[in-house]
Design a protein around this nucleic acid. Structure first.
Length: 263
DNA sequence: ACCTCGTCCTGGTTGC
DNA sequence: TGCAACCAGGACGAGG
């Protein structure tokens, strides 16, 4: 999403900002936030974990979290009942924000608040060179929660959600219920590789479109065609042919191969 | 401090 | 066919 929407936003000034859903900026008044955003010029569109960071020349930043069904579009999306906000840019183009379930959030932060806000919520970026198996082990050390729950915690690592955790655990041959703090060196190295593999493949396929996710031009991602574990109820494991088990871990639907990913 | 669970929403699917 | 129950990519706050 960041890669796809950045060209439409970078260098552009927000001439018009309309926020149609007051939930979007809660607890702040959408009219006031819109007024503050007007006139800001985008320096760059950045990302940390699942937060899009629209950085302005002023040093302020708009943090956009898409949650389950949010998407930024490179058109005005006129007549779409789920359009929650509309930006009009200084080159005459529009960027619309659509979000069926209205879980997504827009938060405008002053320059000094941006990094502290992110740092309190989002851990290390797993695709950066600094991410190591050893560092992963340190983040998981002493944690007694199920491995899957620890990986879904965004402070452990940035960006893993329900799909990519199940995918990564399948690649790593690790059970989602494994106590997070008990992995040995070999298991940590497998998990480290697996997390990168799952995320890199998801990026290459431009995400997973289960129903709502769309790229800015309205097209779908294709990662859902290459799921190895997520959602594969009643299907055999690609490695060993064993039927997948569906369980609930950390309150989320979870799929794993009982043979390849033993407890 | 850590962990689990309910909640915030809308709409599609499933089961009776 | 009709309708209620259940389910969905996430994160946060309350409570244990």
């Amino acid at each position: 999403m960041r890669r796809a929407i950045a060209p439409a936003l970078e260098g552009r000034r927000f001439d018009g900002v309309e926020i149609f859903d007051p939930r979007l900026t809660r607890p702040f008044d959408p009219v006031e936030v819109a007024a503050e955003l007007r006139g800001e010029r985008v320096r760059e569109v950045d990302r940390r974990g699942k937060y899009l960071i629209v950085r302005f020349d002023s040093g302020r930043a708009l943090l956009i979290h898409l949650r389950m069904t949010g998407s930024l579009r490179d058109s005005d999306l006129a007549d779409d009942v789920h359009r929650r906000a509309l930006l009009t840019l200084d080159d005459g183009t529009s960027v619309a924000y659509k979000d069926t379930r209205r879980f997504g959030t827009w938060l405008l932060l002053e320059p000094e608040s941006v990094e502290p806000y992110i740092a309190a919520r989002v851990g290390e970026e797993p695709l950066l060179p600094a991410f190591t198996a050893r560092g992963l082990g340190e983040r998981l050390r002493d944690r007694r929660a199920p491995l899957k729950a620890a990986l879904l915690d965004q402070r452990t690592l940035a960006g893993l959600g329900n799909i990519y955790v199940d995918e990564a655990l399948w690649y790593a041959k690790l059970n989602p219920l494994r106590e997070a703090g008990t992995l040995d060196g070999d298991e940590l190295r497998r998990l480290h590789r697996a997390i990168r593999k799952a995320l890199e493949l998801g990026l290459a396929r431009q995400g997973s479109t289960l129903s709502d996710y769309r790229l800015p031009d309205g097209s779908s991602g294709s990662m859902q065609r290459e799921f190895r574990a997520y959602g594969r109820t009643g299907e055999p494991c690609d490695r060993c042919g064993t039927m997948f088990a569906k369980t609930r871990v950390g309150g989320r639907s979870t799929w794993h191969c009982p043979a390849c990913q033993p407890g």
